[in-house]
Computed example of a mutant assay.
Amino acid sequence: MSKLLRNTPQEEAAIARGIAADTDTFVPGDEQFEQMKPRRGRPKLEVRKELVSVRYDVEVLEAFRAMGDGWQTRMNDALRDWLRTHRP
């Protein structure tokens, strides 16, 4: 069984001095460190969308789905076009 050997405080200090003396060492600031963090999920949209449950005629859904991927976006665009001429 192998035993983990930790650095002594003196060894850690020597390592830190070596890092500080190295001209190629880059220490990011808080803002730069935040930018390096991996992003999870989809990027935030400029225009926020809301998840709703809605019922449409089967024929309407079939027609939009038949157009292939992006059918929900096209349906949203069609509703937006309709709103341009049908404001309450």
Rank of each mutant, 00 (worst) to 15 (best):
M1P: 14
M1Q: 12
K3W: 08
K3E: 13
L5K: 11
R6C: 02
R6A: 06
R6P: 04
N7L: 10
T8E: 01
P9T: 09
P9G: 00
Q10V: 01
Q10A: 14
Q10F: 07
E11R: 06
E11C: 04
E12L: 12
I15A: 11
I15H: 09
A16K: 14
A16L: 13
A16I: 06
R17P: 02
R17N: 07
G18K: 14
G18N: 13
I19L: 09
I19H: 09
A20F: 13
A20S: 11
D22R: 07
D22W: 14
T23P: 09
D24S: 13
T25D: 02
F26C: 08
F26Y: 04
F26D: 10
P28I: 00
P28G: 02
P28A: 02
D30W: 10
D30Y: 10
E31K: 05
Q32E: 15
Q32A: 11
Q32P: 10
Q32R: 15
F33T: 09
F33W: 05
E34V: 02
Q35N: 05
M36Q: 10
M36L: 09
M36S: 07
K37L: 09
K37W: 09
K37F: 06
K37V: 08
P38F: 02
P38C: 01
R39H: 03
R39Q: 15
R40E: 06
R40G: 15
G41W: 13
R42N: 10
R42P: 11
P43Q: 02
K44C: 15
K44Q: 11
K44V: 04
L45Q: 07
L45I: 11
L45M: 14
E46H: 08
E46K: 12
E46N: 10
V47S: 11
R48L: 13
R48T: 06
K49E: 15
K49Y: 06
E50W: 09
E50C: 02
L51Q: 13
V52A: 05
S53Q: 06
V54W: 09
V54M: 10
R55V: 10
R55A: 14
Y56D: 00
Y56G: 08
Y56R: 01
D57M: 15
D57T: 08
D57A: 15
V58L: 11
E59G: 04
V60S: 02
V60H: 11
L61G: 01
L61Q: 05
L61I: 04
E62T: 09
A63F: 06
F64V: 00
R65K: 08
R65I: 00
R65G: 06
R65W: 02
A66E: 00
M67D: 13
M67T: 14
G68H: 01
G70I: 00
W71E: 00
Q72L: 01
Q72E: 01
R74F: 04
N76F: 06
D77C: 13
D77G: 15
D77Q: 10
D77N: 09
D77R: 08
A78Q: 00
A78G: 13
A78Y: 05
A78L: 01
A78C: 12
L79T: 12
L79Q: 06
L79G: 10
L83F: 15
L83W: 07
L83G: 12
L83N: 15
R84K: 14
R84F: 08
R84G: 13
R84C: 03
R84L: 13
R84Q: 12
T85Q: 12
H86M: 04
H86E: 02
H86C: 03
R87K: 12
P88F: 00
